[in-house]
Amino acid sequence: MMSSVVKLNDVSYSYDGTAALTDVSIDIRRGEFVAIVGDNGSGKSTMTRLILGLLKPKHGTVELFGKPISQFKDKSRISYVSQKAASFNSGFPVTVEEVVAMGRYGRLGLFKRLKTEDRSAIRRALETVNMWDFRHRKIGDLSGGQQQRVFIARAMVNQPDLLILDEPTVGVDQKHLKDFYDVLHLLREQTSCTFILVTHDLNVVTNLVTKVIHLDRGSLACDCGLKEYSEIDQLAPSIRPYPVKVLIHEETT
């Protein structure tokens, strides 16, 4: 059995006394592609921020790669593309190459400059998302889809073991959504990374997802495989499953 990458044990979190997550336990294993779904306010982003260490649980524990999060120091093993990535200050004077280089800064330390191996990693990441030719362009001058590919490249530049994408397509127009998911498919094929994707649209990733975590008003409504999730109305009629049935049928036919 694959080793544990993310483990939440009875985790609860509240904002000023209002519960956002209640007694949630999950175990995400190496190589899985996990989709976290749920309505607005269901606790998806809170869960993501707890996993990233941006929030501390009020109750329960978070473990990363088998260690309590407070003892986990190798942050370069985790990468993150936030929903805010698309709403950055587009006037900010940074080139595509500078943005991707930022992904290496966490592990570089003080006084150190980017070395040849860092430059190679930046080039590799940009080539993977087909953005190498745009490396000298200002990030704000690119389209939403291209920007999102650059943020994926920044996330992948350290070849992380865990990639967390928090609704990464917010603000990306329909025309460029396909580009984004094509890159995601490519990364899934080329790496052994574990993926956590917070999404409203499960349909676009049905052939990638191995597990679905459905949150409902801060509680874990479902933690199961995609097939079981498609039959959720029999499992738990109280929650509204995201419409994946049709696609699963299409895949099997």
Partner: peptide
């Protein structure tokens, strides 16, 4: 000394925090 870190923090504070 801190050029890289300050640039990262200025561009994307949340991501900079996640990077440690």
């Amino acid at each position: 000394i801190f050029y890289k870190q300050l640039l990262f923090l200025s561009f994307d504070e949340e991501q900079a925090k996640v990077s440690g």
